[in-house]
Amino acid sequence: MKGALRTLIVFAGLILILAITLALFGLDVGAALSTIWNGAVGSKAGIARSLVRATPLIFTGLGMVVAWRAGMYNIGGEGQYVMGGLASATLALVVRSWAPAIATPALLVGGALGGALFAAFAGWLHVKRGVQVVISTILLNFVAIEFLKFCVRGPLQKSSGGIFQTEALPNTLMLQRFDRQTDFHSGFFLALIVVVIVAIYLYRTKSGFQMRFSGANPDAARASRFEPGKKQILAMAISGGLCGLAGAVDYTGLIGFVGDGFSQDWGFLAIPVALLGNLNPVGAAGAAVYFGGLFAGCEVLQRSEPIGDTIVPLIQGVAVLGVVGMQRWLENRTNQSKGAD
């Protein structure tokens, strides 16, 4: 209950920050907010756009929840997303002749595995070699992005040449779409299913319990024979797997190829999503939908107003800073009122 109230306060605060930002751009705040609102939820197309933006954020946000709950501060969602997309696109070269009912799931599993291995490496470095996971995952982001550039200029480059991207995935292998007018695809439903699975795993299984306990106090987990090191590597693998799955879903559901601009910062935005969701799977899904709507609305605003194309990243940045700042502020308030008791 407290957590829900807190999330509501943060939501409301975000809207206020948003209004101030728009005013600074010299926009009519009321009109601009209503454009964003309509762009996000005002029409079937708007809702579809919001949910499509929310889909990768749900996966990556869940990824952060799992890792951070285990005490592994994974900052490498971006790299894991890229590696997931790349793994999926590589696998596509093999499975393109298979029956779609087998090939498409294989592409998703492949993407998840790609992200999982990439993140598990950072987890292993942390547990066995004492390399802080924060540092290694930040650096591995750069490795992944450079590796992406290399792949789409070399081994995975489209045969017709000239463009730095992979072969387009045949339409038959793409995730199902429900409407010709929108990009909405079945990846969103997959995301919802995964929310439930992750929630069950963390809160209703022995392994998930041991993982959370290991995150809360690794020494006590060791004394209870939970093998916290293994749990933390597993947490990184699951976390990276979810981010990799996000990449694979975007590849098979929305984009259909992997190119230079494949990553849209979904791996980074996952962090405020997880924080806004109180490191809770359902909360993170809610936060992902909220951010998805915000971004979708801002895209419409950008098209309707002569304000240049910086407004979307700017609002993203302001929103993220706002979330982190408000969370911190609320935390301090709670701690202070406890101290006064």
Binding site: F209, R212, F213, A216, N217, D219, A220, A221, R222, S224
Partner: peptide, 19 residues
């Protein structure tokens, strides 16, 4: 240090010994 996860609930800390 070695017995409890202080931020987790009483129930969770009991369960830690009875998994």
């Amino acid at each position: 240090r070695d017995g409890l996860a202080l931020s987790m609930s009483i129930e969770d800390n009991l369960l830690a010994g009875a998994l």
